[in-house]
Amino acid sequence: MSKIHVPTMAEMIAKGKTPDVLFWVGCAGSFDQRAQKITKAFIKILHHFNINYAVLGGEEMCTGDPARRAGNEMVFQMMAQQNIAILNGYEVKKIVTACPHCFNTLKNEYPELGGTYEVIHHTQFLQKLINEGKIKLQGGGSFKGKHITFHDSCYLGRANNEYEAPRFLLEKLDAELVEMKRSRENGMCCGAGGAQIFKEAEKGNAEVHFERADQALATHAKVIAVSCPFCTLMITDGVKNREKEDEVKVMDVAELIAEAEDL
């Protein structure tokens, strides 16, 4: 076991260094215990493959996505403008994030407010490094040949047309991808988006995340791979609802890679 020191933007600049990429952690990845594991897994990958990265640390704020989608543009603008001031202050050029909601907001909504960066999702980031030969995975470890299903996050998939990057990584694990009936463009939402995760669902006859988890369980895969911290929380809850949490794991693609690489 060796310790990892996570470099912040502030200390890099103080040392006169410029990171190649800023890792935007996001609120879920920073505060939620389950989502923190995804953050840590991705940090381990960055560290292991000697990526020159930094985080904002305490200077990062919510992108404003949940406020904007709930209809509160005021709060969104306050967050966005403060974040942009910080990012521009550090002259950030490239951002990688493990949260598709942050990804979408940073990539598509900040440019109009004066914050233009190259923004990529962590699955795209890893795909690119592998394709460029800069990192080489050891193979799938315990996931080799295992049945894995993949739940598309709405904000990576439909919102930004990225369906391949996470699947590419699952392929690199030599896992057997079993698709759900609703996948890719037709994938069903986990129920968290549009600020739903921050309130009780409206009255209905079922829970969205239970439905989606049931669809994933119907594939009989032993791992439900996800690419979003909010999907992770929702689907995990849905798996617990069926008391399958001991048999079926819900894991972010970064966690799968970190585990396969034994990091």
Binding site: T8, F31, I135
Partner: peptide
């Protein structure tokens, strides 16, 4: 709190404390 949950903003970077890995750099 700069986050949708009621956590103090100062705790935002706490996840990085005592972060350990089994394998160091490749």
């Amino acid at each position: 709190n700069m986050a949708p949950w009621a956590f103090p903003a100062d705790d935002r970077f706490n996840w990085a404390n005592n972060l350990e890995t089994k394998k160091d750099n490749a």
